[in-house]
Design a protein around this nucleic acid. Structure first.
Lengths: 226, 226
DNA sequence: CCATTACCGGAGACCCTCTCCGGATAGTTG
DNA sequence: CAACTATCCGGAGAGGGTCTCCGGTAATGG
């Protein structure tokens, strides 16, 4: 008996637990390990990479609501293959964003050694805003609404971003460049809000190109000690 | 190949005739004027009201993505009737929000006579945040992404909100309570971003109930002259 | 080289948006 | 009061999207 849920959230995969890739802590994982000890088959790895590449293209063109059928078609596989590798849209989104998030975290590490803690925080937030703006808040959608449904991968992404922001903000606070009554989560939330509220070029071609910088500047002003 | 823009309105011309001398003042419009001189039929008016009421309920329960079929079913009419009265989701959204926006604009008028221009702006922004948070940024969605597609009604709503914000902000600036290099559009955009980025109770039941106020406080800090 | 079994592809169930057209009816006229 | 007509209603259905299930296929270990 199917539950006739109207427009429900994508059903949390109740059956197959083998599709979840065990999270490798850090470092390149050349092959995706399965729940069994056996290494993944070569065609499975290839199809997964093709799917991520096709998804990256499609999300860039059509936004986070791109058709999953279309993504599977572009990757040259059937819809079933897509759903075997990813439980749904959130997980696919997370896979696409993973590389970007890696870059962002590495950037945070570099900036932790910068001279000015305040400038480092400002610069990283600018990079984060660029990140979150890609595909009209694609990152924001992942950070927020899908957080609970995305499973391990999404939560992991969220946590890594939060850790990076915490480190930079804490250092800025200790150097007196940022007010102390400010939590990393609130700060990120503000920037995500800016990203989500700004119309994307795709939907509104002739938007004000300076607005993101102005809004980020306002947020940065709010972080300074008064 | 398909034209995704369902702008075809077979029956009623959307352009308002310039001869309509009925002032757009705040007041009940007993009948919906048609393009022809004839008044609308009674059942048409009744169905329209039922549709708006059903939409208000459905949007409150399921968010801005509620099924339009479901809304029509709740209103006791067929899908065709819904699309005859409203060109699509944005227009229905705008109809639902109209009353709320009226209230908000009236509030702005009252606050323009308040003692403290800064406190008036802060209070109104708080009310606006509450407004925009209803149904998880339902208002924000209207203000931004649907602005161009919503036609006259949506644009009108957006303009009225913007006018109210402009009046309050200008007065605060003249009294020295707000920095002068701040545009009403940017300010609204920030608050809309806060509304859109905050997870709604429906999707994330146990969120931090204080966060909206904290984030709004940060935005307000950013408006003050440094 | 074969048995095993993880994997693939697509048919298809179900839902949503939006259109089209025969039939019903409110309001007008004689 | 009856007939007429412009207007409106309801639902069938096209088209597309998400997600599942199952028979066939081919990669892999022995």
């Amino acid at each position: 008996m199917n539950q006739p849920q109207p427009q429900a959230r994508p059903t949390a995969a109740p059956t197959t637990t083998s599709s979840a890739t065990a999270a490798p802590s850090t470092g390149p994982a050349p092959i995706t390990p399965t729940s069994t000890g056996r290494p993944a088959r070569a065609d499975a790895v290839r199809n997964r990479e093709r799917l991520v590449a096709a998804a990256r293209e499609a999300f860039a063109e059509a936004g986070p609501d791109a058709s999953l059928n279309e993504i599977a078609r572009r990757a040259g596989v059937g819809p079933g293959t897509l759903y075997r590798h990813f439980s749904g849209r959130p997980e696919l989104l997370a896979a696409v964003l993973k590389g970007r998030i890696d870059t962002l975290c590495a950037r945070a590490q570099d900036l932790l050694a910068a001279d000015s803690a305040g400038a480092a925080l400002a610069e990283w937030l600018g990079a984060f805003l660029d990140h979150a703006r890609v595909n009209q808040g694609l990152g924001g959608a992942l950070m927020l609404e899908e957080l609970e449904a995305a499973g391990a991968l999404g939560t992991d992404c969220h946590q890594r971003i939060l850790d990076a922001a915490t480190a930079l903000l804490t250092r800025a606070q200790e150097s007196g460049a940022a007010r102390r009554d400010l939590s990393p989560a609130d700060l990120l939330q503000l920037v995500v809000g800016v990203a989500m509220s700004i119309p994307h070029k795709r939907t509104s071609p002739a938007g004000d190109p300076e607005q993101p910088q102005r809004l980020l500047g306002l947020v940065l002003d709010a972080t300074k000690p008064h």
